[in-house]
């Protein structure tokens, strides 16, 4: 556990020092969501209908955009190879880095999302479901995104390629989350969706770190 806490603390401190860089995906999220009324129509009904999809797809992209930061600077300055040589569990190391990344990107996203949702006339009574789905799903996005970044670290075309690899894996998260929200909008039970997302989260927490460790090793070969 020592390694987990030490790396978590280290990464959070670094994120704090790079506040402006960390804020970029959030600004991206805000701007892209505001483009939809301009691009589609400011019509109240139409916007509230597409709001869950818009918020979710934009959140996916913002999270994906931010993923590169999780390993990039550590890879470039040689810190990552040092971390991989630390005696101790590499899985905990990966979990610590993903957790730190989620705290610095995922959490602010969850806080901003309801505000942006209201701009799209998102039904107020379904806001809670939006936040809950984001809360359960953004860690999944961070975990899966980490695989893509780890696989493409040593390549020059890393960023766009890693999105290409990982976006298909985001589909279940997108589907379950938006379905949960539309169920909440029409006052239907939503616990089943949360349970599914939760199961997906637990599975990802257990399995994905191993894939990330393997991918990091390949990148350092």
């Amino acid at each position: 556990m020592n390694i987990f806490l030490a790396v978590l603390q280290r990464d959070l401190k670094l994120a704090l020092r790079r506040r402006r860089e960390v804020a970029n995906p959030l600004v991206f999220f805000i701007i892209v969501v505001s483009l939809f009324p301009l691009g589609v129509s400011p019509d109240r009904e139409l916007l509230s209908e597409i709001a869950p999809g818009v918020i979710w797809v934009t959140a996916l992209l913002a999270s994906l955009m931010s993923m590169d930061a999780i390993f990039r600077s550590d890879y470039d300055d040689g810190s990552l190879e040092q971390l991989l040589l630390l005696p101790g569990s590499k899985v905990l190391l990966v979990l610590a880095k993903v957790t730190a990344h989620w705290i610095s990107i995922g959490l602010p996203l969850i806080i901003i999302a309801p505000v942006m949702a209201l701009l799209l006339y998102f039904p107020a009574h379904a806001i809670v479901s939006l936040m809950v789905t984001l809360l359960i799903s953004t860690p999944i996005l961070s975990l899966l995104g980490a695989v893509g970044v780890a696989l493409t670290l040593s390549l020059r075309t890393g960023g766009i390629l890693s999105s290409l690899l990982i976006l298909p894996f985001y589909i279940p998260v997108l589907i379950f989350s938006t379905m949960a929200i539309s169920a909440a909008t029409s006052n239907l039970p939503v616990m089943g969706y949360y349970a599914l997302l939760g199961a997906f989260l637990i599975m990802s927490l257990i399995l994905v770190p191993f894939a990330v460790v393997a991918a990091l090793k390949v990148s350092h070969n």
Binding site: K13, L14, R18, D77, G78, E81, Q82, L85, P87, G88
Partner: peptide
């Protein structure tokens, strides 16, 4: 791997120093 890494100190040609700190 574990016991080997306990005994190993490696310094690569990249300094692994965080410039923000």
């Amino acid at each position: 791997a574990q016991s080997y890494q306990q005994q190993l100190l490696y310094i690569g040609h990249r300094a692994a120093v965080k410039t923000e700190l």
